[in-house]
């Protein structure tokens, strides 16, 4: 499977290395022409305002948004979660609006409040690393499936063929989440289960 990684700013090279180690092919996306022949899209961590700024400047916004609304599967981590969400807070900023979730930026506070947590999920142990992480403060409970909860807040959710983590699977070099998201993507995409439209994005 060929996974495109948004490579404007952030730790995209680490995601690429972890994906490759997990057996996927990675393709860095810097310009519109890089978004072709992909089986999945990965939005990496980094600074969401910087990424947003470059997305709009490079005209990548429309191209990526179109592909995802046509059914391209998505795995969004940390800053990516902010870009993918229907709504953002603190401050409110433009987002793609793919998933019915509301994400609050830097919600745990500054770097002093970055943390790690060990959880058990699907029968195995996982080290979750949260860096100036956002919080999923609201979601459509009928549509969004919550997979992992930390301190009462969802940190790993899925909606249709879209997966969101507020932590960084690439920092623990944990192949599990890539397999969980992308293997399922392969299954669901083949079944072509997405005839209806995704919710429209919120405007800035």
């Amino acid at each position: 499977m060929r996974i495109g990684i948004l490579a404007l700013q952030g730790d995209f090279t680490l995601h690429a290395a972890t994906l490759e180690a997990a057996g996927f092919t990675s393709q860095l996306i810097k310009q519109a022409e890089d978004v072709a022949g992909l089986d999945g899209l990965l939005l990496p961590g980094g600074e969401s305002t910087t990424q947003l700024n470059l997305l709009l400047r490079e005209k990548l916004w429309e191209v990526i948004d179109y592909e995802v609304r046509q059914g391209l599967p998505v795995f969004a981590t940390c800053a990516g979660a902010i870009l993918a969400a229907a709504k953002t807070q603190q401050p409110q900023q433009r987002s793609f609006g793919w998933l019915p979730i509301t994400v609050e930026r830097n919600a745990y506070g500054d770097q002093r409040h970055s943390f790690e947590r060990q959880v058990r999920f699907h029968g195995s142990e996982h080290r979750l690393v949260f860096i100036r992480a956002p919080k999923i403060v609201a979601y459509d409970a009928e549509k969004v499936q919550v997979n992992i909860v930390v301190d009462g807040l969802p940190v790993f959710v899925e909606y249709r063929n879209q997966f969101v983590t507020t932590f960084h699977p690439e920092l623990s070099e944990d192949p599990f989440f890539y397999h969980y998201a992308f293997n399922r993507m392969a299954t669901t995409r083949a079944q072509d289960q997405y005839p209806d439209h995704l919710p429209s994005g919120c405007s800035s």
């Binding site: 730790d11 995209f12 961590g45 980094g46 940390c78 800053a79 970055s114 080290r127 690393v129």
Partner: peptide, 18 residues
């Protein structure tokens, strides 16, 4: 103990930027 922790993790997030 681990290759990346919350400190080096933030450094990773700053990559490819100004």
């Amino acid at each position: 103990a681990e290759k990346y922790n919350v400190k080096t993790g933030l450094a990773e997030m700053l990559k490819g930027g100004v």
